[in-house]
Simulated scan of single mutants.
Amino acid sequence: MAVQISPSILSADFARLAEAAAAIPNADWLHVDVMDNHFVPNLTIGLPVVESLLKATSTPLDCHLMIEDPDRWAPAYAEAGAGSVTIHVEAAKAPIRTLRQIRGAGARAGLALNPATPVEPYEDLLGEIDMLLVMTVDPGFGGQKFLDVVLPKIRRARTLIDGHGGQVWLQVDGGVSAQTIERCAEAGADVFVAGNAVYGADDPARAVDGLRALAEKA
Rank of each mutant, 00 (worst) to 15 (best):
I102Y: 08
G104P: 07
A15N: 15
L43A: 08
V172Y: 01
S84K: 15
M66W: 06
Q171D: 09
T159N: 11
I129Y: 04
V85A: 12
Y122P: 03
P121I: 11
P118W: 07
L214H: 00
L160H: 09
D202W: 04
G142P: 03
A18K: 13
E51K: 15
D36F: 00
M131H: 01
V50H: 04
H38T: 11
Y122F: 15
I129P: 02
A213M: 07
V3W: 02
P41L: 07
A112Y: 03
A207V: 05
V89R: 14
A197I: 02
A27Y: 05
R72V: 12
Q101P: 00
G175V: 01
M1P: 12
T86W: 06
P7T: 04
M131L: 15
F39T: 02
N42W: 05
I5N: 02
R103T: 13
I87D: 11
V119W: 04
A76T: 06
A15K: 13
T59S: 13
P75D: 12
R97K: 15
T117M: 10
V40L: 07
R100H: 15
P60M: 10
T44V: 05
G174I: 06
P48G: 06
D173M: 05
E68F: 10
A116N: 13
A218S: 14
R158L: 06
P25M: 07
G110H: 07
T44Q: 04
A18T: 11
D36H: 03
R155T: 15
F39C: 05
E182C: 13
L160P: 07
A189C: 06
I45A: 02
M135Y: 00
T136N: 02
A22Q: 12
T98A: 11
L133K: 03
L160E: 10
S8L: 08
F146P: 01
R16Y: 06
I154M: 04
E19M: 04
P204D: 07
L147T: 02
L170D: 06
A82C: 14
F14L: 12
T117G: 07
D173E: 06
T180Y: 04
A15L: 14
G166L: 10
C184D: 09
A116V: 13
G81P: 11
R103I: 10
V137C: 01
P25E: 08
G106N: 09
A207M: 08
A218H: 08
I154T: 02
G143T: 05
A27H: 08
Q4A: 14
A23K: 03
L53D: 04
A197Q: 00
A105T: 10
R100P: 06
V191H: 07
A56T: 08
A22F: 03
N114V: 11
W29T: 02
A194N: 06
H38M: 10
R158Y: 05
P121M: 11
V49E: 09
I96M: 11
A109G: 10
D190P: 02
G174H: 07
V208A: 00
G163H: 10
L132Y: 01
V49G: 05
S8P: 05
C184W: 04
G83F: 13
S58G: 13
W29S: 04
L214S: 01
V34I: 14
L61V: 09
A187Y: 08
A157Q: 05
H38Q: 14
D203P: 05
D62S: 10
L147H: 00
N196R: 14
